[in-house]
Design a protein around this nucleic acid. Sequence first.
DNA 1: TATTAACACGAAAACGGTTTTCTTGTGTTA
DNA 2: TAACACAAGAAAACCGTTTTCGTGTTAATA
Lengths: 340, 340
Amino acid sequence: MKKKITIKEIARELNVSVSTVSKALRNRKEIGPETTQKIQAFAKMLNYKPNSIAVSLKNKKTRNIGVIIPEIVHHFFTTVIYGIETVANELGYNVIVCLSNESFDKEVINMETLANSSIDGFIISLAKETQMKKDFHHLKEAIDQGMPLVMFDRIVDEIECDKVIVDDAYGAYNATNHLIRSGCKKIALLTTVDYVSVGNLRTLGYKNAISDAGMQVNNELIIKIENIENCQGEIEKLFNDYDFDGVLAVNEVFAVTAMREALERKIKIPEDISFIGFTDGMLSKHSYPRLTTVQQHGYKMGEEAAKLLINKLEEEKEEEVYTTEIIKTSLIERESTRAI
Amino acid sequence: MKKKITIKEIARELNVSVSTVSKALRNRKEIGPETTQKIQAFAKMLNYKPNSIAVSLKNKKTRNIGVIIPEIVHHFFTTVIYGIETVANELGYNVIVCLSNESFDKEVINMETLANSSIDGFIISLAKETQMKKDFHHLKEAIDQGMPLVMFDRIVDEIECDKVIVDDAYGAYNATNHLIRSGCKKIALLTTVDYVSVGNLRTLGYKNAISDAGMQVNNELIIKIENIENCQGEIEKLFNDYDFDGVLAVNEVFAVTAMREALERKIKIPEDISFIGFTDGMLSKHSYPRLTTVQQHGYKMGEEAAKLLINKLEEEKEEEVYTTEIIKTSLIERESTRAI
DNA sequence: TATTAACACGAAAACGGTTTTCTTGTGTTA
DNA sequence: TAACACAAGAAAACCGTTTTCGTGTTAATA
């Protein structure tokens, strides 16, 4: 086990002072060229790497960014992380991932531990529980401490910071409209409970599209599903009780589960019922039939969030200007809808 | 923007020395009870939190663990991260995630940056490229520096460290056997190219099961797929050229793609052909028909990996004893296979 | 009463760097 | 030859803790 070598050791070996070594390694002109040469060569030979903790302590910069998400076994969130990681890495930052598991308390604890000089800034998507409680003191505190914060997807208007969102309402509007133009008359909506911001926006888009087409919104066709695990029961009920020819689902699982139900009832897709989901993940690509989906561009969201954060971290004067980046969704047409 | 308060400030305000504050906050008995009281109360009032960077520098412990995985938009790896995160969090560690994107160079760079005192230890699953090149100097170096290392899933025998793997060969053996016992006579295998350790082991298990059943291994039915993205072509060819009544796939995507091909050819599942996949992810649960799979228990693997690592980090004497934890797979029977 | 031990706390060094300030020797200028 | 600018490097301060080693006071012991 060879120990890590420090500036001090280099200085001793070369009979110079530590400050000289430090400066030479960073090419300061106040050190003569041959001294610089000698020191750099020696350091390289010993494979010297500065201790990043010591540098962090001195510079009050860690070059770490904290990412807090509700879930990680989740296609959308992982694509976002992928985007964040890619940008962060290019710019020399590491990513510390924490999970809130949709819990308010865990979110708060995670933020508090990370805020203690472990990271330079946050990227966060709120836990459901936080959205429900509407308690955002932990976010405010982080901002108060001068720690930049970028929210994505599950955001909240009360907090002033950079934000990256998808045009959820518009995406849902568009998808619903697509169903209508392909001939659907009665479109069911599989959505989440109200406090989830994105579910709400998508519901709004759906309603607007139907109204704008001169049709009537039928609230009985709007199914608010609390728990993704047992959505099947509610979906079966929908099929039993009502008649419809199109389905918009706010996520992949709802859509695929509904398609299965249709398949098992020998309903033809897309001839009898058409389906559109949100999130273009594995399920959509590999479902049978392949699912038409609203692509959320998670990777792009991650990239943008990371860029916004790192910009804030590296800009000179701190302006209190916050931007909200809206990522356009796009509809990926596959086999679960009729061509227009 | 309120600034962070330090021990020094507390000391000044209370007219005591910094060492007294430090000790009082950590309940050292050498500080009198009322002084301790006073200091702790004051610190709490000011919401003092120690600067974790300074603590890390002093203690040479960061309480961060680095996780390097080939991909993050991937069900298995995220379940592993979930397991790691859960254990790490309970024990007061943060998780820094780095992606190798299956690239050897990125893996090396990631390890080198993290090794510079950002973390206390590694959990890693190797990039395909690393497995192909068989260049493990970066792993050796980490160990040389006294940085504990735990490998999972994509491991390598040449490196001595703690390991967590799945009984891949046995899982495949078992699954193949299940197919045989349910009446399959000609079983195709959809696997990866040779250098991927897990693909190899699963192929081995498949072959053994067939031999042990007194049947002949037909190499034409073993399809080695290089690129998961365009597996469809190779699968179509299999259906065109050969005759078989069972399929074992080393991942979900291969299995589901093959099922789709069968469905489109009006082949009945599981009556005409039975299917088993590996990795019990979203696709298996929601495919049509639902896929019988070999469950890899990624969450458990993550937990075990984290426990092994943190044990090594916190044990007193460093013994050079390494364990290889083998997680049992289990077969989850669903609709794509016949009951036995 | 002198000696020792326990107690409560402070000063300073250390962790590994970066940055600012000081020192010294050399060469230039008047 | 005195005065000074300048280059090159050393020394010291600092980041925020923890830890070691004193030290003065009080209480217990011989």
